[in-house]
Design a protein around this nucleic acid. Sequence first.
RNA 1: UGGCCGAUGGUGUAAUGGUAACACAGGACAUUUUGGUUGUCUUAUUCAGGGUUCGAGUCCUUGUCGGCCAACCA
Length: 557
Amino acid sequence: MFAEDKKEEKSLNFIEEIIEADLQSGKYTQIITRFPPEPNGYLHIGHASSICLNFGLTKKFPGYTNLRFDDTNPVTEDTEYVESIKNDIRWMGFEWKHELYASDYFDTLYGYAVKLISKGLAYVDDSTSEEIAAQKGTPTEPGTDSPFRSRSADENLELFEQMKNGAFPDGSRTLRAKIDMQHINMLMRDPILYRIKHAHHHRTGNKWCIYPMYDFAHGQSDSIETVTHSICTLEFVPHRELYDWIIEKLEIYPSHQYEFARRNLNYTVTSKRKLLQLVQEGHVHGWDDPRMPTISGLRRRGYTPESIRDFCDRIGVARRENMIDVGLLEFCVREDLNKKALRRMAVLDPLKVVITNFPEGVTEMCQLENNPEDDAAGMREVPFTREVYIEKEDFMETPSKKYFRLAPGKIVRLKGAYIVQCEDFVKNENGEVTEVRCTYIENSKSGHDTTGINVKGTLHWVSVADAVPVEVRLYDRLFVVEDVASEEGDFKDYINPDSLHVITGYAEPALADAKPGDSFQFLRKGYFAADTESTNEKPVFNRTVTLRDNWAKAAVS
RNA sequence: UGGCCGAUGGUGUAAUGGUAACACAGGACAUUUUGGUUGUCUUAUUCAGGGUUCGAGUCCUUGUCGGCCAACCA
């Protein structure tokens, strides 16, 4: 059980209420859910919500959850996606009961189709795609019957078998349900059940040249697995009538579909089509680019499974349209990493400080806490010398009144080391400050400070002689507008041209040992995770998220 | 012009006919050898009108606004 699940019981969401009622009434003694991705892309933060819901339900209530790949369209699907999906679900901390594929049921589904035809409830249609579209009518106008609608069951059976045997080219015929072309629900106007695709399938190879449509695969797959609560997003609400119709006519186990609103995150996109486009056109460096809202991207960025689960928990489950602030996701990862991440010092934009009264050639070790939030994390030693780097932004020639960092004549604490006072500074010909000269106060060392001086500011620093150069990748939101989908024109027009900055930072020696995936808090700068490409020779860090910064906020306003 | 689904602080969720709650974001103060963390305080006539009721965010009704539905995608 996850720690966050142990919190005091929150009120149930509407699906949990339904399940509780079903359990209490004795309708079920256990529940079965499923997570049904199509293996045609990587999982994203929206899927995370669905994963937490489906798997979370069977953690909370008796029962189990299957992983079922909805692989009914061979032309877009691939085993690469299957593997990434399994990997991401496990990383999220969930384990499925059975690994299943809709393609496992192709024979059964074929039999179901034959049964429907025999009952006079399906027919082979020779109409073209355009003709079928025309027959459908519109939401406000009824459709018209296909000229092939009244074929005999025997003829349909014969034709359908020939379809299966590869007698016809792609697109030449379809199997359609015979329901009602005047139905108020467009999906009930003789929906296509099977189409011809002479395509290689990632699992069944070339065995089949006809493939069932979503509506003729999903509900039956649920039924075959005796899924009790089949949970999907709101755009499938109109499909429920067809879902129930097929199950009823086939007289198979009655699974039930329940819909919730997909979660939208601002400043990003969560459409697989759009994400694929970003990858294929090189706007990002792959599905796991740390700017991507994919689970693999978030992982590489430094997000933890705990933080993503917490996020999903906080945003909840409902049926209304929503746009969730990415700030909440950031809050969740800060909260998690604050407890776990070891503190390290790294200077991202260096300015040299010379401590004029500190002896040359001497290295003095300083003891610093690895994590003030976790005593068990212990201490580490950091070398201090006459010359150190601080951040450029931590010195101001003419500071405002509320600035309590370094400035001419002002004192400041170098974290874990000494209190220093600024005596002088050097400028280059462009008027930029290139060096700050300070004196240190001898008996002010952290832990042994007998001066009684109260300093307002504390700076992070790195010894010049001991600094480890590291590549640091700073990320910003991928899009410049909150709601990309609602904007006019091509979504790519709203890509943030400054979503990535690669810089060289100077880190304390301990950071040279970072292993890919390790997370750290760079003091006063944010949380950073060693990238998958990081090595001891060339450490690379991704900024997961900055620290909250009240000073920066105040400066803006 | 049809059908379906929605509407509660800036955002996301709660309140199951009986005091509109929680979290994030924002603001203020305190604490702090990270301007981090932590603590305290603070921000709503529940889309609108009508109705039922002792009592309505909740039930009924009308309207308004938003989303979805006319892929051989899922």
